[in-house]
Design a protein around this nucleic acid. Structure first.
Lengths: 200, 200
DNA sequence: ATTAACATACCAAACGGTCGGTATAAAAAT
DNA sequence: ATTTTTATACCGACCGTTTGGTATGTTAAT
C-alpha cells in the first residue's frame, strides 16, 4: 500500500520536526503512525533510510525555480521572489500547524543541520543550490544595471550576495524570534532597504 | 580537582561539536577524558547538566561588547566589528583545529539549535542578545546620519538590520560552503557593499 | 494457493546512571 | 610525634531500561 508508506513518511516528518533524529524513537514512529514495527519494516529498510528519504524530500521542497520570476526588473524579480517564499512558508506552517509546538521553528533548522552532519551528500546538494541561486541573482542584477534601473559602483556579485545573504539572516531571525511579524513582510522590508539605496 | 572538571568540560565540548547530543555517549565522554564513570558523576549531576553548562559557556563566548568599537563612524564601527569577529572565530577554529573534521563547521550550528530545542531559556538569551545588538547598530547608524557620513531615506532600523542580517547570512554560508574564503573578508566585502551605497 | 500487508513477541546491544569500594592526603585528636 | 578521623578523587562492575531491529506469525486480497 503506497498510502501507508506515505503516511509513515508524513508522520515521521512531524516527529523529526519536533526533535532530533536520535530523540525520535522507532516506538514513537510506529505508535504515531498507528502501525506496528512489522508494518514499518515492511516498507522501510531502517530508521536511517527513512530519515534520509524525508530529508531529501524536505530539501527539494525548498528549491526555487527562478525562471518563473521577471528577469528584467530587479524590483519585480525580488517582489515575486518574496511572494513565492511567503507562499511556500505559509503552506509549510499550515501543513504542520496542528503540531502546534513553537519548537517547530527551531527544529526547522535542526533537521537541516542534522542531515548535513549525517549525510555529506546533503551538504553538497545545498552548495549546488546556493550556486544556482547566486547565478540567478547576478543575472538579474546585471540586467538591472544595464537597463538603468539601478546604479552602483558595487560589483554585481556583491550586490547579488547582499540579497541572498540577507535572506538567510531574515529567515534565521524569524525562526528564532520573530514569531509576531510575518516572514515575507520582514524580507520585503529588507529587500526594499537594499533596493532604495541602489535605485537611480 | 577543578582541573579535572575543566578537562571533562573541554573534552565534551569537542565531542558535542562533532555530533549531536544523543550521539555523544557517556562512554565516549568518559573514555576520551581518560576517566571513569565514577569520576564523571563525582563532578557532574548528569549528562544533560553537563551539556547545559557547555552550551551556556559557548553562548557567552559569542557575546559582543559593542562599546569597544568607535560609535561615531559607521565605517570604523563595522571595520572594528569585523576584525573582532574575525579574531574570535580564528581563535575558535585554532582551539579545535586538532579535531580536524570538516564536520565541525556544520555542528557549530547544530549544537546551538539543539540547545535551543532542549533549553527554552537558551532561546530567550539569544533573543536578548539580538535586541542588544540591534540597538547598538541603530545608534551607530543614527550617528552616521547625523554627522553626514551617510545619507539615505531608509530608516535607521532597516539599515541596522541590513548589517545585522547579512552577518547571519555570511556566517551561514561560510559554515556550509566557503571553506576557502576567510570569514572576516567575506563579511567585510558584504559590509562594504552596503556602505558604498549609503555613503554621501 | 500465493503474495502482500500487517501484528506480536522477542532479542542482543547499548544506554545513562548507581553503588560499593580504594587510594591518598589533609585535619583533628591524642 | 603518632594515630585516628574525615574528605576528596577516582574506579569499574553492575542495574534497569530503552534502543533499533528480527523472526514468526496471522489476516486479507488476488
Amino acid at each position: 500500500m503506497i498510502e501507508t508508506r506515505e503516511h509513515i513518511l508524513n508522520t515521521s516528518l512531524m516527529l523529526f520536526l519536533q526533535k532530533s533524529y536520535k530523540d525520535v524513537t522507532m516506538k514513537e514512529i510506529v505508535d504515531k503512525s498507528g502501525l506496528s514495527k512489522g508494518a514499518f519494516y515492511h516498507y522501510f529498510e531502517s530508521k536511517e533510510s527513512l530519515f534520509r528519504e524525508i530529508v531529501l524530500r524536505f530539501l527539494s521542497m525548498g528549491k526555487v525555480d527562478y525562471e518563473k520570476f521577471d528577469q528584467n526588473s530587479l524590483k519585480l524579480f525580488y517582489s515575486q521572489y518574496v511572494d513565492y517564499l511567503q507562499k511556500s512558508i505559509n503552506e509549510l506552517i499550515l501543513m504542520f500547524s496542528f503540531t502546534a509546538e513553537e519548537k517547530f521553528n527551531v527544529n526547522f533548522f535542526l533537521i537541516m543541520f542534522e542531515a548535513a552532519a549525517r549525510f555529506p551528500e546533503f551538504l553538497k546538494m545545498e552548495l549546488e543550490n546556493y550556486q544556482k541561486d547566486l547565478k540567478s541573482w547576478i543575472t538579474v542584477v546585471a540586467n538591472a544595471k544595464k537597463s538603468g534601473e539601478i546604479r552602483s559602483k558595487t560589483n554585481n556579485i556583491d550586490i547579488a550576495k547582499l540579497f541572498l545573504y540577507s535572506n538567510d539572516g531574515v529567515f534565521m531571525r524569524f525562526i528564532n524570534n520573530d514569531k509576531s511579524g510575518n516572514y515575507g513582510e520582514l524580507l520585503r522590508r529588507n529587500y526594499n532597504a537594499i533596493y532604495e539605496n541602489l535605485k537611480t
